[in-house]
């Protein structure tokens, strides 16, 4: 085991340097993702800059109690004439009084998607593919025929004798009479009537009927709100496609809207979560709340099972006193907003 003399020190230096380099390499090696992906800014996707809202535009403040729906999956919200709050989800409808106190719960045979409270207190509930009608006490009056496998009812509204249902699966609005007879298809592509057909890329497709009997339908693929007569004539539309605060941005917005007592609109958006007010002509008025106020502002959800990941966007309703009720499904809460300066 005799060492070799010539050039021994060179070998020693090289080996020592190599050991040093090896140790340094091991220490520098990040196997756990601690240092991040190391991708340049061009790979970043950040909407937080766009989500910022000028505080001067915010016209509303949160008021009243935060109402917990007590559900695992809240889906839709509606108000009746007395200001009671109805929430659909978890195979039930839960009713809260105006102060947010839980009043009662109506069990349903299936998962409700949307609901509307008629003036006479009847409940129209859109299940996935059909409508259930309940009386004010919660007794089932009727269960209408199924609209087919592909149907997905996302919004329902009643006006007098007419019941209007938004079917996101078939991308069409259906008009029923109070007995459940299908009267008309509204919004079908029709070149003669200048109707382009709804563009509904995702299961968000809302409608509402104003007091004067005009039907408003959100066309989320075009980022606008259309106005139809109940006969199905497209009258006019409004809505600007923009990331700016005045417009609707990204895919499938507005996801939900409601009519205010003064004829204006309150709209809810996903992606960049924000709730905004427009007047009856569609001119931007102001902001109710931005993404920082909702749990839905979380960018991506991580779930154990796919159904837990089903993103359900905000739903809005307006009270007769002008208050705005926002259902936040990821959080299973209802937030109530009132105009700044208005009495509590």
């Amino acid at each position: 085991m005799s060492g070799r003399a010539g050039g021994g020190w060179i070998v020693a230096v090289l080996v020592a340097a190599a050991i040093g380099a090896a140790v340094a390499a091991v220490l520098r090696l990040d196997t756990t993702g601690r240092t991040g992906s190391g991708l340049s800014e061009a790979y970043e996707y950040d909407v937080s800059r766009l989500a910022k809202i000028d505080p001067n535009l915010v016209l509303y403040v949160e008021s009243g109690p935060l109402i917990h729906t007590g559900m695992n999956q809240s889906r839709s919200i509606a108000l009746d004439g007395a200001g009671r709050i109805y929430v659909a989800g978890d195979r039930a409808i839960r009713v809260f009084d105006a102060a947010g106190k839980a009043e009662r719960m109506i069990s349903l045979p299936g998962e409700p998607q949307c609901l509307d409270v008629a003036d006479d207190g009847r409940l129209f509930i859109g299940m996935k593919d059909h409508v259930e009608v309940l009386d004010a006490q919660g007794k089932t009056i009727a269960s209408w025929d199924s609209l087919g496998e592909e149907a997905l009812l996302t919004s329902i509204a009643s006006h007098g004798d007419a019941v209007l249902v938004a079917d996101a699966g078939h991308r069409i609005v259906l008009r029923f009479d109070a007995a459940g007879t299908l009267v008309d298809h509204i919004g079908e592509k029709d070149a003669d009537r200048d109707i382009p057909g709804f563009s509904v890329p995702s299961p968000h497709f809302d409608l509402a009927v104003s007091r004067d009997g005009l039907l408003r339908v959100a066309d989320p693929g075009r980022n606008r709100i259309d106005t139809f007569t109940l006969d199905g004539n497209l009258e006019f539309w409004w809505g600007e496609r923009s990331v700016g605060i005045k417009g609707f941005c990204g895919c499938c917005n507005p996801v939900s809207f409601a009519l205010l007592p003064d004829g204006g609109f309150v709209t809810a958006e996903k992606g960049l979560v924000r709730v905004k007010i427009y007047n009856s002509d569609g001119a931007f008025v102001g902001v109710v709340a931005g993404s920082d106020q909702f749990a839905g502002g979380k960018q991506i959800k991580v779930c154990e099972t796919p159904e837990e990941c089903q993103g359900i966007a905000l739903d809005v309703a307006a009270g007769p006193d002008g208050r705005i009720y926002v259902l936040d499904p990821p959080d299973n809460t209802i937030k109530v907003f009132r105009k700044k300066g208005a009495s509590t």
Partner: peptide, 8 residues
């Protein structure tokens, strides 16, 4: 006696 919640 109100049903406060039901969980699936």
């Amino acid at each position: 006696g109100q049903l406060l919640w039901k969980g699936d």
